[in-house]
Simulated scan of single mutants.
Amino acid sequence: MRSKHLTLQLLDCAPTCTTLRQEVMQGLQQSPKTLPSKYFYDEPGSRLFAQICELETYYPTRTERRIMQQCVGELAELLGPDCLLVEYGSGNSLKTRMLLDTLKDLVGYIPIDISKAYLKEAAIALALAYPALEVLPVCADYTSEFELPVPARAVRQRIGYFPGSTIGNFEPMEARRFLQQIARTCRGGGLLIGVDLKKDFTVLHHAYNDPQGITAQFNLNLLRRLNQELEADFQLAQFRHYACYNPSEGRIEMHLVSLEEQVVHIDDIEIPFKRGESIWTESSYKYSLEEFARLARAAGFRVERAWCDEQHLFSVQYLATL
């Protein structure tokens, strides 16, 4: 076990503090104010999100898990042996174990995540649980350009894995560009992706406004991170989590609302807030099956299979490159 720990190699392409500062300042100085949702996922943020995924009101995780349990055998037959599995935003990799247990003669697994400490912990746990599997973790903003590590064995095809509803966090044009990037990386292979579906807005409201307040903690943790890493002076008690569904755009919008008029400082820059002004921290677009099929085709994929739960809350889709 110890030697497996020591031989695990992590490719570090993590965003620098300079990149974080530039993107944060750009977002906070525009109107409306925004922050990139990718920066939710430092180590505390990643752990909070793992708690969100287990909440009763947060349907995507448990619904996706049930769909995967039903379709994973069919998926293994569809993909065949000698695949390289590349996961975007791997987090704790718990969902991935179902694939690692079922896919035939998997060549290797490349988990990509922006949280280095969380990635290391998850990658070591997987390397110990699957000693015959080559685990090649990459710490990176998965939307950026970087070279994937090369496994020791020959790869027949690359299969991307993008579970959860994270594709919804992209604006539609950004989603198309990101899917095009995956299509280039996995040319000749495909992408297994989770897609959240359009549904009654009350279900969405409860999913993003849980009574335990974990989602609120997750949202506010972004400001705590900026205080720690950029020496900002956000007063967390003066901001409140707010999430709502925008039916005309088909998306959940998540905000941090200033409870009073105030000024926040980052370096020598003053960032004024009016009372009621918000920082837009995340969007989560919901798709119909037809809408997502059009997006996938525009990005260089075709929908080979789509599996849904009985209530049509969520879908797991396998996209083949064109």
Rank of each mutant, 00 (worst) to 15 (best):
S3W: 15
K4G: 09
T7D: 09
T7P: 01
L10M: 02
T18F: 12
T19I: 12
L20R: 08
G27I: 11
K33C: 01
K33D: 02
S37G: 14
S46D: 06
L48D: 01
L48Q: 03
Q51H: 05
E54G: 13
E54V: 13
L55D: 00
E56P: 12
T61C: 01
R62A: 07
R62I: 06
T63P: 07
E64G: 08
R65L: 15
I67G: 09
M68D: 10
Q69W: 08
G73V: 07
A76R: 01
E77S: 12
L85C: 00
L85T: 02
V86I: 07
V86L: 00
N92A: 15
N92K: 10
S93W: 06
L100V: 02
D101M: 01
D105M: 13
Y109E: 03
I112Y: 00
I112L: 02
Y118C: 04
E121Q: 10
A122L: 04
A123G: 01
L126M: 08
L128M: 10
A129M: 05
Y130A: 02
A132L: 13
V138E: 01
V138N: 00
L148W: 08
P149W: 06
P149D: 07
P151N: 05
V155D: 04
R156F: 08
R158I: 09
F162R: 07
T166A: 11
I167S: 02
F170R: 05
P172V: 03
M173N: 11
A175Y: 04
Q180L: 12
Q180N: 12
C186D: 04
R187Q: 12
L191A: 00
G194Q: 05
G194N: 06
D196N: 05
K199C: 10
D200E: 13
H205Y: 15
H206T: 15
N209R: 10
D210K: 02
D210A: 00
Q212T: 14
T215F: 06
A216L: 13
Q217R: 14
N219F: 06
L220N: 10
N221A: 10
L222P: 04
N227P: 06
F234H: 11
Q235A: 14
Q235L: 14
L236W: 08
Q238S: 14
Q238F: 14
F239L: 01
Y242R: 10
A243V: 08
L256K: 04
S258E: 01
E260V: 08
I269H: 13
I271H: 01
P272M: 06
R275P: 11
S278G: 11
S283Y: 15
A293M: 03
A293D: 09
F301W: 09
A306M: 15
C308K: 15
L313D: 11
Q317Y: 11
L319R: 00
